[in-house]
Amino acid sequence: GLTLLGTSGAANAEKVYRLKMAESWQTNFPIFGDAPRNMAAMAEKMSNGRLKITIDSANKHKAPFGVFDMVRAGQYDMGHSASYYWKGKVPNTLYFTTMPFGMTAPEQYAWFYHGGGMQLMEKVYGKFNLLSFPGGNTSNQMGGWFQKEINSLEDLKGLKMRIPGFAGEVLAKLGASPTNIPPGELYTALERRTIDALEWVGPSLDLRMGFHKIAPYYYTGWHEPATELQFMINKRSWDRLPEDLQEILRVAMRTAAYDMYIQSYHESSENLAVLDSEYPNVKIRTFPEDVMTALRKANDELLAEKAKEDPLAKEILESQANYLKKVRHWTDISDKAYLNSISVSK
């Protein structure tokens, strides 16, 4: 819980507010774990030491997927996790991390802060006495490591792939077999071809898993174009903070999220360079057009089903689809056109 310390007669300004935060990551997990620590350090500095946030990693609380419940129950004041982890408890939390064929990171940030995303997120989380904020972006994730090349839809049939969640559902519609493998056994399973493929994150975090030594194909992404992590706060803990500290916390979270996005971008480029120079045999591939078209069709059908089942899901999906349409037009004639034009002139 939240505790107040400090001299009783002194001004409000001297009170120290302590918040306890649970993260879903193991101690010292790079990038993901840097975001909450960076946030806590900023908040403490900006508040001149009045706001102190301590962070417990998954190895302390042992419940990476229990952060939602623990913050909701007040066992922790805050959490750092990912919204789509809670879709088994609250289905509509799925939409606030990333969606296959969805927005890129800048587009999605624009949707959160200017396109109604934050309000929709509040609609979903408010019922549970929680506040949720963007918590850092991994940038575009890779499509995964494959033992065989995917040349046609036929190659997806019976493909045993470790790919959890909604993207797995999309692949399953095309005849692939999403498979659960505990992370500790992924390496052996892929090496021995117990599974044909798996997805992890991107160069920033994949290289330490060693997959590049055992799988020849690294596919570009389609299913997690902008994975956004999440800060969540118990509403009671939030309400107990004075207004200035609330604002400091808000700014610290937003800045830490941005910092994580650029850190991911940097680490991915660094690690990709390592991959290029030290493992030239790894072939980077993109799914052929007919596969992409079929995946997209399956994705649309599944989303239509979700929208039919739940009016709030419909509202969120429509908001995302409408915003994407508008913002992508700008992306196309700004970044995309720029990249296309300069690659032609090279």
Binding site: G88, K89, G165, F166, G168, E169, P178
Partner: peptide
């Protein structure tokens, strides 16, 4: 309380085709 919470939320597996009634 832990199990009751799961009951109230109708918690189920987060993976497609997973088990319900967590």
């Amino acid at each position: 309380g832990f199990a009751h919470e799961a009951y109230l939320l109708g918690e189920k597996s987060g993976d497609p085709g997973g088990l319900t009634h967590r």
